[in-house]
Write a protein that binds this DNA or RNA. Structure first.
Lengths: 333, 333
DNA sequence: TTTATATTTGCACACGTGTGCATAATATGG
DNA sequence: CCATATTATGCACACGTGTGCAAATATAAA
């Protein structure tokens, strides 16, 4: 292992002071071009690498942006993180990953670690089991800016980015009603989660406004799996008053519904219309190709990042951005 | 923003030396239980948070593990990162994400940033456009342990973890031949990439050993998209000597092939057998459900992590672990 | 009690960089 | 050519923690 060279080493070798080296390498205007050139080329020849830990200590702040998500392997989160990572790299930040696996305790651990690391900022989406948010309040109180994304808390004064979940289901219902469906079910998640709560409200309200009497919200109280969608529709299908259309709050759930239909020769969209609120591109590959209401993930990531890195200059008011969803019409309705 | 309390603050308040505080908080055996208790409870009451940047500087090493992957939003990488993140958290490391987007220049940037951050270790999968690996040699020379994963370099002496790609295709070919397929094509990636190279060798060799005369490797020279699979099979299908089975080196490619077949009423598996080397669980949802040869991603992640964090104690010999793939038989062959 | 030993705490310095302020070197103007 | 303004560099300290070694205190043995 090579000995790591420091700015002091360079200063000694060149017979100058390390402050001058520091300034030269950071291209400070107060250093003459001649010495700058001398220092930079010497540093390069010696393979000098800035020690970021020292910089972070000196700045009392690290160059990291922490991202807290329930599960990185889910497409929406993966895609979101992917965009954030690009933006971070472009702005000389590093992205640190934290995964809660939908567990409140892991979220607590993540927040603790984040504070220890004096991170520059946090982008977070709450876990399903998070009922108290004191840890995030402490984080903000500690001086670390936080932007919430998708699964947002309702009792914290911080910037937020979400899809317009209320209108997403509202529009889905109207679309289905227009197509002649009469009995629309809603497969959703725990209603203490902002996303599902908003969507169910939009669903209920659209039905109410249309004076539609059938209403059926099925809550899956855990992380969605294909089997959950399968089981849910299986149970619904046994009702004497079964639905003729279903809105699924994730691609995973809709995939389970699709599988049940294929296994039981239930023709989609004739016997059952399916629409998913999802972003997964493979929804197009289902038989029949799945109609989805998508969230503008890339745009949301951009906004979240902007709210975070711009948050120092622009502390004026709390901003919650609600982004319009977009329908991709395929063959399942 | 609250003032951040340090061990010196605690020391002053308690009339002791900060070294004692440091030791007490780290549960050093040399500090008496009485003072430990006093210090720990006082620290807690004051909301003391360790400053990891200071620790990192002192240790000349950070608490981060860097993960370099081409694209986080691809299922295999996302899943791999997900497991690594869990393992890291369990071992008091943080995972820093780096995404190359298949670009050599981004890989260079990532390696540079990683050196600056004096990261504890790196897990990396090469980008498609990486032809030189000097940057990784420099990284290792700089004293940072690196474990390569999946897309490994052939000219670096470092621990590696891959699937047994040679045998994966070898077995696929034999399986297809046993089922009566005679003309097997191989949809693969750039052959300077270890993964695709090995797979194509396994494919070629299995055909040679079976004295099968038809052989057809189609190289997609870029990041795979669904359209690439679609276009490739479309072109193959125009041949007078078209294949009756195809091995696809990713789920994306196989999805494109599947789509072409559905659009053109080509019955799978009667007219065309399809097998993908992939991990994506949604392969089960295609029509027909896709037969896949899977890599043991979770296991590979565990091994990679173990090779990395155990690498300080266990520098003895370079280890390359080649993990057995597993067939999941469904309806596409 | 005295001496030897074990236990506990303090001291000083190191880790590498950045910044306000002082000082030195150079340029500008009369 | 001197006084002043401008530019360039040096100095000292701070950021927060950890560790080898010395010192102080407590405990055990004689």
């Amino acid at each position: 292992m090579k000995k790591k060279i420091t700015i002091k080493d360079i200063a000694n070798d060149l017979g100058i002071h390390h402050a001058t080296v520091s300034r030269a390498l950071r291209n400070d205007s107060r250093i003459s071009d001649a010495t700058k050139e001398k220092i930079v080329s010497y540093a390069k020849s010696k393979g000098y690498k800035l020690n970021q830990s020292a910089v972070n200590l000196r700045n009392t702040k690290s160059n990291e942006i922490a991202v807290i998500v329930p599960n990185i392997s889910h497409y929406s989160f993966a895609n979101f993180v992917s965009v954030i990572t690009d933006l971070a790299a472009k702005n000389n930040y590093i992205v640190s990953m934290f995964q809660t696996r939908e567990k409140y305790e892991y979220e607590l651990d993540a927040v603790k670690t984040i504070m220890q690391n004096r991170v520059a900022g946090v982008i977070a989406s709450l876990s399903l089991t998070t009922l108290k948010t004191d840890h995030f309040k402490e984080l903000i109180d500690f001086g670390i800016p936080v932007v919430f994304f998708d699964r947002i808390p309702l009792d914290i004064d911080a910037p937020m980015v979400t899809a317009d979940n209320y209108n997403a289901t509202f529009e889905c219902v109207n679309l289905l009603l227009n197509r002649g469906y009469k009995k629309i079910a809603h497969l959703t998640g725990p209603l203490h989660i902002s996303v599902f709560n908003e969507r169910d409200k939009g669903y209920q309200e659209a039905l109410r406004m249309a004076k539609n009497t059938y209403s059926n919200s099925v809550v899956i109280p855990k992380e969605f799996e294909i089997k959950d969608g399968f089981d849910a529709i299986e149970k619904l299908w046994k009702d004497e008053d079964k639905p003729d259309a279903i809105i699924c709050d994730s691609f995973t759930l809709s995939a389970g519904v699709n599988m049940f239909c294929r296994n039981n020769q239930i023709i989609v969209p004739e016997k059952l219309g399916i629409i998913a609120i999802a972003n997964d591109p493979f929804s197009a590959l289902l038989e029949p190709p799945q109609t989805i209401m998508t969230q503008p993930l890339e745009e949301m990531a951009h906004v979240a990042f902007e709210l975070l890195v711009g948050s120092e200059t622009n502390k004026s008011e709390t901003k919650t951005k609600s982004m319009k969803t977009k329908l991709i019409l395929r063959k399942s309705i």
